[in-house]
Design a protein around this nucleic acid. Sequence first.
RNA 1: GGGCGGUUAGCUCAGCUGGUAGAGCGUCUCGUUUACACCGAGAAGGUCGGCGGUUCGAGCCCGUCACCGCCCACCA
Length: 1015
Amino acid sequence: MLEKTYQPSKIEDRIYGEWERAGAFEVGRSGRNGAEPYCIVIPPPNVTGSLHMGHALNNTLQDVLCRFERMRGKDVLWQPGTDHAGIATQMVVERQLMERQEPDRRTLGREEFIRRVWTWKEESGGTITRQLKRLGASCDWRRERFTMDDGLSRAVIKVFVALHKEGLIYRDKRLVNWDPKLLTAISDLEVQQVETKGSLWYLKYPLEEVPGEFIVVATARPETMLGDVAVAVHPKNGRWKHLIGKHAILPLVGRRIPIIADEYADPEKGSGAVKITPGHDFNDYEVWLRHEDAELKGVQPISIFTPEAKLKSSTFDDYAWGHRGTDPRHPDVTMADEDLVGEETFELIPEELRGLDRFVGRKKIVEMLESKGLIEKLEPTVHTVPHGDRSGVVVEPYLTDQWYVDAKTMAQKPLKAVRGGRTKFVPKNWEKTYFEWLENIKPWCISRQLWWGHQIPAWYGPDGKIFVEQSEAEAYEAARRHYISTGFISENDYEDLKRQPAFADWLKRDEDVLDTWFSSALWPFSTLGWPDATPELKRFYPTSTLVTGFDIIFFWVARMMMMGMHFMKEVPFRNVYIHALVRDEKGAKMSKSKGNVIDPLSIIDDLGADALRFTLAVMAAQGRDIKLSERAVLGYRAFATKLWNAVRLAEIYQCNVPEEFEPRHVGDALNRSIIAKTAKAASKLTKALEEFRFNDAADTIYRLTWDEYCDWYLEFAKAKLTSSNNQIRRETQSTVAWVRDQILKLLHPFMPFVTEELWRTTSKTRIAEAELLTLAKWPSLRHLEGRSEKQTIEFAYQIVRETRSVRVNFGMPANERIVIAPTKLPMANTKILAANTEAIERLSNSQIERGRRQRSNKATGLFVYRVSIPGVAGAELKIVMPRSFDPVEQQRRLRDEIKKIDSEIFRLNEKVSNPDFIRNAPSEVVEEQRARLKEEKTRRAKLRAALASLRRAPNVVRSRSKLRPRKGRGKVKARTSRRHKPTRRKRKLRAASNRKLRGALRLGRAASKIRRRKI
RNA sequence: GGGCGGUUAGCUCAGCUGGUAGAGCGUCUCGUUUACACCGAGAAGGUCGGCGGUUCGAGCCCGUCACCGCCCACCA
């Protein structure tokens, strides 16, 4: 026996355990050998991560797809794993060292530090995996991978070496975005532009050729002026063009720099002349390149800042003015890269500026210029300043050697693949974003000055020559061959060297590691076993669908396309489903600092994983962000409870599906109808999922369960479940159970836990079906969708709806039984009516009168309200009003309704009498409109008749509405004026007093009648 | 500057190929020996952002304007 309410926390862990024990999520389960493969690779969460709402959404959608396809009989592989997340993980472990007051990273040394990270990973790295299980994720956990595990590392090295040999990976000295806090290069994508208030300084540079005159340059970064190599002005326009070819003297240092012509200088902006600082600005670097062989021949970019060692106790910014050796304030700390500023550059920097933090230096240099009268003016501006997305500090363009991927070349095939439809984005408009980015892609900087990650397989020889090989041994071998063949070393000398300890340092491995996204880019094939030709690789690549957020289309999706096309010669996935962001209920991004984060785990604890999953799925309409509130989840927990209770009802009435039950042969109209509706819902849901319309799919099963099954079907079925007619009772019991089972299956991808639990507890009576719902077959019910709707139970439902509506609209109390009489029914409907009389009467609290007895109603002369029964031509429902309704109110109501119908009829008339409409519209639309017109006219006639008879009706008491304050109105006011909702107890009291009031009114009515008679 | 998306009931949002504007929540009224009060019934509530166009017919297609959001680029 099921408990009265569903408590998710009681069952979820147990159910997940059962799935795992049964190996339900394992790929290639027995009996699936002939099955079509279906594969999703999980977007690997950071190993440091814990489940946030974005993960919850992302993985819910993947799980819905996987469970759906698994039930459809496909051989499903949901490939799980985590990402080593270079910077994030390194930061976490460094923080931990600090908290435990252990030696910092540099003190520990690289090897020991990495050992610590691995320890951390073993201890804490499983968090996200456990949390995904709590969400219900049906991954094949046996196959879990990690971007730093041996296999994936091997794939990374192999890819790097191969691309290097093809010239698609190379080392280059150029400007990169340098993160001064993390002390590493980062890629363009890791830079966030932040709007910042700043100033624009107008600096006066003296002209060499015209003493006493100046050229004015505008800059937001005056401190970089020490690195200026030129001043650029527009070649044709502006106030400075006459100075082209002349020279300026760089203030403070007295260096002579040329004034050059370049279109980059916009005469409209700033002063019209721009300082060129190729060592510290991407645009200036481009200008330098353009003039490298002309006016700037022999001039090199100057880097005037040095990254310095990250100091634990540092109170100043980590990026400072050029200096060497030691920091004056920290004489004991040796700089990591003391040679990054060359001797000459060092000499270029005035002594008082050396060693200053860059922002302190800015102030200082402005003061120095100001004191010399070289600042013309200062303008406040707002400009966007690049920040490191991880560190949050202002990044610095920095000229240094890094490794790059030739992304431009690699982008070509991915572009073609999507243009040719081999990979499709859903929704499609993201393709445009993808195209734009790939078409304008720049070299991808892949080296990072970190320790945690895949160390670059490049070794430097004694003369700086680079050997990129898969292993140290191979690098040494390559070096041996190279140096011997070039005569750098003789064979004998090499053999000697080999025996010496110095040999270990003969080649030096590159210290840097690869961008985390480099290994993620291989994910769709590396996790399947590449570079080995595994059966899984053959079977599941290309994968079916990738489910991810739009924020990583560039970071991840595009790069997987590049690597996939290059190494597998095929797209990594057929579909890319891009889902939205989960925001808070006000639409703000969830963030810890804002404190508006909804933690999926606490939601799961309180309301259940199913409720959360269903909420996310039903809200996942394409192209819109999800605004999530706890209230919404609450609503879908109620849905789980509703389902629970429906199954309980089936249990109470001993419903089960006997072996011989065949839904096609069901005879009763009520039962036939719910079977057809279930079948239609199944098709609709299936189609929606095939098209990634998760919200439509979820909505469909919600409607079927709650509206059709619970609110209508089960309510009608109750009468039959206790019927003394054995045949009808058994058929209904079977149908109740059969539909229940279809619902459990259809809902299972969305709400796996509660449906599994219900399946288990009700499956004792089921035959030839899977023990576990998760392994059951997806319903395929096309043949049960049925033919016409005309003779279904729907009209019986309509009778109930109309009667209920009339009851409330005419102000009758719910507990007063009224008399209704459906008339002019076709034979089929008459039968259905007869078969469902009990249910109709119970649900509308009415008594159905038919045939002879109807005429006796006429004899009473009571007011009879007539309405058409929608869907059954000509049929109408007479509702005999009791003596307890308010006629004045109802006359008003009827007149209002007639007015509405009048305008509707007018509109339809216009339409139908318009020859253009008749000519152009499809005939079925014309017919439809005509039918509607007719229907509306009939309705109006009935209402008019009702109005007329209302005036004559003997059960009308005119004085009543005067006696009684207009029902409800006064109370409405009182209620809405309250600050808060009355408590349940108060509401009960109020209901009781309302009943009393009604009692009093009835008395009043009787009294008034007597009075009238007297008159 | 380039691109994408949004504007529909009090709130949050659906609305597929143009053909009677929907849901959930909230509000109001009524109803509990009933599978479920995490419930049931009914009701109120909308010039579908503005203007123009195409069409027999526009929430949907086209143009335009306004406001909101996001992405990319740039900003001396």
